[in-house]
């Protein structure tokens, strides 16, 4: 059936099964391949997008539920990679393979909108995506930098 999506400020018409996950609408039907498939069960967060400004794992959102909402993908986060998170990511050389990083940035961007000065505990809670390369330490540092926070004090063992 015909579905209408508003993605990164543009309107797109798609003829698809309304139960198709938004992830596949974005990737296969519309070519927004920055949103990644990792697990298909909302475990890894590689498919994170914003729906009306809130982070959502698009592999678990039916197309019919996303139609009509303001959808933002990594391609629409900033016009030219100038979002403070994107700049901090490059500055701190965060990525390794890079596959999870778009989802990480989208999760972090949604968090910063609601919580501009996040604590480490906030980051643990809201950016719990999976990075198999293990770049978490740098992701945390980059979020703090983007939020204008001084580098977090090293977590000390309780000794």
């Amino acid at each position: 059936m015909a579905l209408t999506f508003k993605i990164n400020g543009q309107t797109h018409e798609v003829d698809a099964d309304p139960t198709t996950p938004l992830l596949w609408i974005l990737r296969d039907h519309l070519g927004f391949t920055g949103t990644k498939f990792g697990c298909g069960i909302a475990q890894c967060g590689a498919c994170t997008v914003h729906l009306d400004g809130t982070a959502a794992r698009s592999c678990q959102v039916a197309a019919s539920d996303a139609a009509g909402l303001e959808i933002t993908t990594i391609e629409g986060l900033s016009p030219d990679g100038s979002h403070p998170l994107q700049k901090a990511w490059v500055d701190l050389n965060v990525p390794q393979c890079g596959y999870c990083q778009a989802g990480m940035i989208m999760a972090a961007a949604a968090m910063l909108k609601a919580t501009p000065k996040p604590t480490d505990a906030d980051i643990d809670t809201y950016v719990d995506n999976l990075c198999r390369c293990g770049t978490y330490q740098r992701i945390r540092a980059a979020i703090h930098q983007a939020a204008g926070q001084a580098p977090a004090a090293p977590k000390k063992a309780k000794a």
């Binding site: 990644k36 990594i74 900033s78 990083q101």
Partner: peptide
Amino acid sequence: GKVNNAEIVTGQLQYGIDVR
């Protein structure tokens, strides 16, 4: 820095799964 960082953080880097 890694040469692909700018493409990674904007979702532009093409992995195998992104081939069209």
